[in-house]
Structures are given as C-alpha cells and as structure tokens.
C-alpha cells in the first residue's frame, strides 16, 4: 500500500488525550512496516503550537486544521472538516483512538467517505500490505480478526492497548484551512463537575461492588486518590443507586484495560468480567472465597475489604511519601 497513513489526533481544550500518543505510536509502527508516509492531523481552534507536541512520535507531517468553529467538538463540523482533509491528502489508512470522540467521529467519517471501519481494535498486524485487526465482540468474551476491503480503511484503537513510543522526528506543523459548511448543532457547555479521572484511559482502576454495602465509597475513593486511580463500580452497585451509570465497569458500561485493576467486594458476574478482564494485572478482594472473580484475578485476597483497603492506602501513602 503506497498511500499513507493518517492518524487523527484528539485534543480537548488544548490538551491531547493519552490515546492520541498511543495511536500515533501504532501508526508509526505500521508506517515503518509498510514503508509509507505517516501524517498526524489535529483539529481545533488555535492548535498549531499544540500540534508540535506530536513531532516526538515520528510523523512525517503534522497538519493542524484550524477554525473557530472547531473550538469544541461537534460531530458535524469535525466530520466536514476531516472529510475535506481526507479528500485532499488521500490517505489509505486512517487511525483514530476509540475514545468517546474518536468512536463518534470515525463512524461518521466512514459513512461520509464510504469506507469500512473496524471499531475498538486491540491489536493490528500487517501481513504484506494487508492489515488484520483484532477486536472484541460479545462484551469481550470473544475476539474477532477482521480485514477491511477498500481503498481507504478506518480503524479505531482501544485506549491503553498500544504502547507509547517516542520515535523522534523533525516534522513541523502545517496549518490547513477547513471547509466546515452548515452545521445543525450548537455547542452550549461542558459540565465538568465530576473532576473524575476517565475510566477508559486510567492506568489504575479501583472498583467497588455490592460488598461496599451502600453509597459510602470512601475507602475505595481514598485508595484511588493515593494511587491516582479512577473509581469504578459493578452493575450491582449502579443498580442499587450507589454510583452513577457512567462509573459502571462491565459489558453494559465501560470496558477498561488498565495496567492495574483492583476489585473490592465484586463477586465477578459475567457482565462485570467482560468489562475488565483485559486489564494487565487484576487484584480481587472479597470475603467470599468462592467468588467467581478469583478465577480471572492474578492476585486474590479473601478478607473484609473495609479492613484491607484503608491499610493498603496507608502503606502506599508511606511509599509515595
């Protein structure tokens, strides 16, 4: 495939999401294998300086699509702008992060440019110039290998699955103007009151389930705070109304792949396991020695979580000073 690879970098309020660097590193790896050009493209208002941060990951070119209408993410505006850049640059492969925004944008762009899309890939391999993507289905219970057919192919890559590798480079930002067209949506505001670390991007996730016994998640939250971790919950806890839907880890909630997942008082229903079994290290603490989660965990502790969790918090505080 001689046509190049285009990585769509995702920024929000002037900060790149971590998945951007993961996807760009993956793009670099594939571009080196295929011997083709790697272009990073970032959309927004006033983002040319920010774009320079992408240089370290080795793209051949960095395009900054600047327009005041791109200041906040709106599907229509971003789809129009990106589709225009794709027409102009004619890449063969487009890579997105499978974040909230990346999933939204990739589906729309795929339909617009009439190209196939593989969503939420956990691995991409090259055989000659054919890319095979591995993606979870049925809530992660199975994996499917897929290939895409067409002159342009879109892939979105699940956060926390590709390694970030600094490759160095000397690409400078080229500013590109965009054709936004008419947009039937208007951004009002972002309500950022949660102040929470995003579950899908967090390197450590600490979750509580039915064993929490009520709304009081302080032992789990305290531990998460010293670890810089996101707080998750099982479906049982969400159904009880102890935590919000957006905290739910599981098949019908968030699917997470952190470096460390700690489950407190979660029995491990299939529904929950689907959302966290791809975590690299899993620690389960439950007072029931028969809890199914122990079958998926790397380390298991049969104990009262209210005794263990504060103790772990204290010990970690000692280490981190």
């Amino acid at each position: 495939m001689s046509k190049g690879i285009m990585v769509v970098a995702e920024q929000s309020d002037g900060v790149f999401r971590k998945v951007t660097f993961e996807v760009l590193s993956e793009g670099k790896r594939i571009a080196d294998k295929l011997g083709c050009q790697l272009t990073a493209v970032v959309l927004g208002a006033d983002i040319a300086a920010l774009g320079q941060e992408l240089q370290a990951y080795g793209p051949d070119r960095i395009l900054a699509v600047e327009d005041s209408q791109l200041a906040d993410y709106l599907t229509d505006a971003y789809t129009n702008a990106l589709s225009g850049v794709i027409e102009q640059e004619d890449p063969g492969i487009l890579l997105f992060g499978a974040s909230v925004q990346g999933k939204d944008l990739s589906a729309r762009v795929a339909a617009r440019i009439d190209a196939p899309l593989a969503v939420d890939c956990v691995a991409i391999s090259c055989d000659g110039d054919v890319l095979t993507a591995t993606r979870p289905i049925y809530g992660g219970k199975l994996l499917a290998n897929v290939v895409l057919e067409g002159e342009r192919q879109l892939f979105s890559i699940r956060p926390n699955t590709a390694e970030i590798i600094k490759a160095g480079g000397d690409a400078v930002v080229e500013t590109v103007s965009a054709e936004i067209g008419t947009v039937s949506m208007k951004f009002i505001e972002k309500r950022m009151e949660t102040g929470k670390i995003d579950l899908t991007e967090a390197n450590i996730v600490v979750s509580g389930g039915r064993g929490m016994g009520g709304e009081d998640y302080s032992v789990v939250e305290d531990l998460a705070a010293v670890l810089g971790a996101a707080v998750g919950a099982s479906r049982a806890a969400v159904d009880e109304g102890w935590r919000s839907h957006s905290d739910q880890v599981g098949q019908t909630g968030k699917v997470v792949s952190p470096g460390l997942y700690m489950a407190f008082g979660i029995s491990g229903a299939i529904q929950h396991l689907a959302g966290m079994s791809s975590s690299k290290v899993i620690v389960a603490i439950n007072n029931d020695a028969e809890a199914p989660i122990f079958a998926k965990a790397d380390y298991a502790v049969v104990a009262d979580l209210f005794e263990i969790a504060p103790y772990i918090t204290e010990e970690i505080q000692k280490i981190s000073g």
């Binding site: 929000s12 999401r17 906040d72 993410y73 709106l74 974040s99 909230v100 925004q101 949506m185 208007k186 951004f187 009002i188 505001e189 972002k190 309500r191 950022m192 009151e193 949660t194 102040g195 929470k196 670390i197 995003d198 579950l199 899908t200 991007e201 919000s244 957006s246 905290d247």
Partner: peptide, 10 residues
C-alpha cells in the same frame, strides 16, 4: 463525555 462529565448542545 469522558470522566462521566456531560456536554450540552442544541
């Protein structure tokens, strides 16, 4: 949107 936050639009 990410982190359980909410984005409002028309």
């Amino acid at each position: 949107i990410e982190g359980g936050n909410q984005e409002m639009s028309e």
